[in-house]
Design a protein around this nucleic acid. Sequence first.
DNA 1: TTGTAAGCGTTATCAA
DNA 2: TTGATAACGCTTACAA
Lengths: 337, 337
Amino acid sequence: MKRPTIRDVAAAAGVSKSLVSMVYSREDGVSPERRERVLAAAQKLGFTPNQWARSLASGSGNFIGILVVDLHNLIYTEVADLARRALLERGQQTFMAAAIISERKGKKFVEKSTIQALLDLRPNGIIVVGDLPEESALASIPDSVPIVKTIATLRKKDRAVSIRSDDKEAMALVVKHLRMRGHKKIQYIGPTDGAVSEQRLEAFNLAMTNQGLSPKVSTCERTEAGANSAAKAALAEKNPPTALVFFNDVLAVGAQQAVADHVAAGKPFVAVTGFDNTYLSELSQISLTTIEPEKEAIALKAAELITDPKLVASMAGQEILMVPRLIVRKSTDFSQK
Amino acid sequence: MKRPTIRDVAAAAGVSKSLVSMVYSREDGVSPERRERVLAAAQKLGFTPNQWARSLASGSGNFIGILVVDLHNLIYTEVADLARRALLERGQQTFMAAAIISERKGKKFVEKSTIQALLDLRPNGIIVVGDLPEESALASIPDSVPIVKTIATLRKKDRAVSIRSDDKEAMALVVKHLRMRGHKKIQYIGPTDGAVSEQRLEAFNLAMTNQGLSPKVSTCERTEAGANSAAKAALAEKNPPTALVFFNDVLAVGAQQAVADHVAAGKPFVAVTGFDNTYLSELSQISLTTIEPEKEAIALKAAELITDPKLVASMAGQEILMVPRLIVRKSTDFSQK
DNA sequence: TTGTAAGCGTTATCAA
DNA sequence: TTGATAACGCTTACAA
């Protein structure tokens, strides 16, 4: 009933437990016949080594930890999964854990123990997917363990490498696209609860001024309902925007009710854009113009970097920006609506 | 640089390491002054116990493992998160891991090592969220560790307890609803790749015959595109259905293009239903009539059960069926369309 | 090539 | 109440 250990196998095979250990951890150094004997015994007993006991003894778990900051964020799970598959193809074991984000007094924070739990497993490297509200837990990772962050910004003096899409470029694409369609009153709607959201907002402002337009901005919570009421408010003003640029797809989709109501009330068409190109935006009823942040490229790059500690060390504090693509769909195309 | 251990704390506090251990594992048994001294030293060094070394030594990790079968399934992540929060409130630590589902030769299967990895951590109990294609790995869990499955069916001779919604009841609700709106040609579209999907299909068949209707069924892959082409094919027949019942929300949403095209071609309104009441179905542009499987109740029940090993043992092999609710939205309401 | 023994960070047993 | 000492399942010098 109890899981067999290295000792059970050793006894069954008539060898010492170190020999059993060596069979599993080294290619050579044990004679073919003994190796066979050990393997046969292990097979019979149904033995597989306890990965975590190994990591405790050896000081390294020989796997890459993937920390997903928020399971409900479609783009996070997508990138995490892509990275995991890429690592798998490189023969790297991975272990994926989800952080717990709690909210106390309206402020989000990470349950530190979740991160610590993953760290205590002693990963060879760790890929953080998403913006961590608080990350003092990461400080306890030895310098020899590389950290790659994706879809997240770096802190000051951060030794990690960050991979994400170039928000400035993305917003430039969005604003240019809207401007070419004749929009001038363009309003941005999004949260300002983290580094990523603030940078995106700034990127919007910059893109607007570069196009000779004056940016207008309103903030909202990270919920569909929040986006919807923000959009409603924006459209209710006396000189309403003709285009709404949202922080991401989920918010854009959440606000489509307000937009539909506006149009139903006989007001002019309002263009809407999202960000992330999640599968939501593809749906035919939604058909949202959005930005593809090159999720696959981000995941691939993360997988490539994390397996090369020296490289990551040499790039400490750098941000790798992927060139985003604009995906035009019906939400910005009046004729198709 | 290295994380401090119990030994470092003991040295700093001038006590033995057993004492330090006791401070962290027992409420009493160590004098207040020593306790304080230990805590102070720990604080200064930034010590926190290594959870996994504890679990190795004590034989129990003192946490509940949550195994999410597929991160991309909205209902899985939702239930997993709800269960986690419920457990957190009961003061139970949790650790959430994602299974790797690979596909070889068109057949899905779980990367066994993922499950084993979670098991090797020695959880006090394990909640499986979703249907596992293959679960021999679970066999190595000692009988003393309770297993609760959610949104999944039980195998034969399964010692786990399963919590899910009553598909028969759900399908009865759906079919009755459609019948009351005058539909008689009702077609089911869904995959048949697992126990859950097959049971749902059967439930549909049963509900139809109970209503004196003859069921029609077609299968599709678990993708939006698959659902869409299946719907297209169904609607292209000479005597097309007037209502389409889908296995879940994602498929129903994926097929809305085919439905829209059908209506755009001047054909009569086609009612559509989903399953799961994910946030997709709520979106105003989608507004999908669906079944709420009582995710919250499922998660709560799972949390309640998993903390009571004896109870789970006494219920081995039982399935707890939650009474589902029908959520009526525009997708089955011609007048509102 | 193989076995012995110490140790990873912790708990648990048992004297003191 | 405290502190040795032996585990937990495994790795890893080091010795044979």
